[in-house]
């Protein structure tokens, strides 16, 4: 027994211990990558890494004071709601996909994404501690725990995270990353259009960039997983559209409660539909809503991509061009014409 030379044949990665406790364990080998997407996404995630401490949120203090009390309350509730979703995703949503990974590198990618979701969850706390008081923060958290719609949105995906079906886990995770958060993201984008809380908006844009990669990756792995189960194609497509509709309805109710008083519900809904389409596309499905139903106010789309129109003022501490560890912009074979 002890004389056998261990090979990688029949060996398992640590999550496999649960079902095969006697099998040989294999360390991750990044020099033998089976799915090139794993390495590509890992590199993209690490290149995009950031921390809220690097965003000059304190520059938003005077803008915060200038907001009307109901706008401040709305902001705190929206951000506490976002914190809730990121907490779900960091501690359960990403981690639960490790057991279903198709490659050992996919397992590692989820640990990376899970950590980043925790960074996102923490970033809202940074906004709170910079701009508000402990009393207001506690109040917002009480609101989150007591809000039935917020709870329902989370539990709708949690039931699948803890369920028996790997494909349903993937769909739920992709919909959370690509659909559920956007009603919340709308508010800071709306404020940034009015040139208020612009540093907070910069932080949100960093989060948006990460979410695009997270949603893309789960959606991509979902499609690989579905390829292995062609018999489930119709069933899973049906499941996806039903879950999307249920989550979309919850989004409308949740957003109605928050945004109706500001008269923003129509536009928030369009933004949610626009992102619902993108969530479906990440999963490889056609868009569900028509172009007319997804027409978001152009200034909100402009706020997504401030780009060249933005005045990059190094001294103001504003501007979304924040980058860390910026290395060479070219490589050897880049455009060697």
């Amino acid at each position: 027994m002890t004389s056998t030379i261990p090979t990688d044949r029949g060996s398992i990665t640590p999550p496999g211990y649960r079902h095969q406790p006697t099998a040989r364990l294999r360390p991750i080998n990044w020099n033998r990558v089976e799915d090139e997407k794993d390495l590509e996404i890992w590199n993209r995630l690490t290149a995009n890494f950031w921390l809220p401490e690097k965003v000059p949120l304190s520059n938003d203090q005077s803008a915060w004071q200038a907001l009307a009390p109901h706008e401040r309350t709305l902001t705190m509730r929206v951000f506490t709601g976002l914190t809730m979703l990121d907490t779900v995703q960091a501690t359960v949503g990403e981690i639960c996909q490790i057991q279903d990974a198709r490659t050992e590198h996919e397992e590692a990618v989820y640990t990376n994404i899970a950590f980043m979701q925790s960074v996102h969850a923490r970033s809202y706390s940074s906004v709170f501690s910079t701009l508000t008081s402990t009393r207001e923060i506690d109040e917002a958290y009480r609101w989150a725990i007591g809000n039935d719609l917020l709870q329902a949105r989370c539990k709708k995906v949690l039931q699948h995270y803890y369920g028996p079906d790997p494909l349903k886990r993937k769909v739920s995770s992709t919909l959370l990353s690509s659909l559920l958060l956007y009603a919340g993201f709308y508010l800071p984008l709306h404020f940034s259009v009015r040139a208020t809380l612009t540093n907070t908006a910069d932080m949100i844009r960093l989060i948006l960039r990460d979410k695009a990669v997270h949603g893309y990756y789960s959606g991509y792995k979902y499609q690989r997983g579905l390829e292995a189960h062609p018999d489930r194609r119709d069933e899973m497509e049906g499941f996806t559209y039903v879950l999307l509709d249920e989550l979309y309805q919850l989004e409308l109710e949740y957003s109605g409660e928050l945004y109706e008083p500001l008269g923003l519900l129509e536009d928030v809904s369009a933004f949610v539909r626009y992102n619902a389409n993108k969530a479906l596309m990440n999963l490889g499905y056609p868009a569900r809503f028509t172009a007319d139903e997804t027409t978001v106010r152009p200034e909100i789309l402009a706020a997504l991509a401030p780009g060249s129109d933005e005045n990059h003022d190094f001294f103001s501490g504003s501007g979304s061009s924040y980058v860390i560890g910026k290395a060479e912009h070219t490589s050897d074979d880049d455009w060697d014409f």
Binding site: E40, R44, A47, N48, R209, A212, V213, V323, K326, E328, H329, T330, S331, D333, D334, W335, D336, F337
Partner: peptide
């Protein structure tokens, strides 16, 4: 488009290789 912020990786390597051929370009 690849990446999310870095110019170097925006164009897929394969596309660069394809366009590096003067005929294709």
């Amino acid at each position: 488009t690849y990446g999310g912020g870095e110019h170097a990786g925006a164009v897929p390597k394969q596309v660069i290789a394809f366009l590096n051929d003067p005929v294709n370009r």
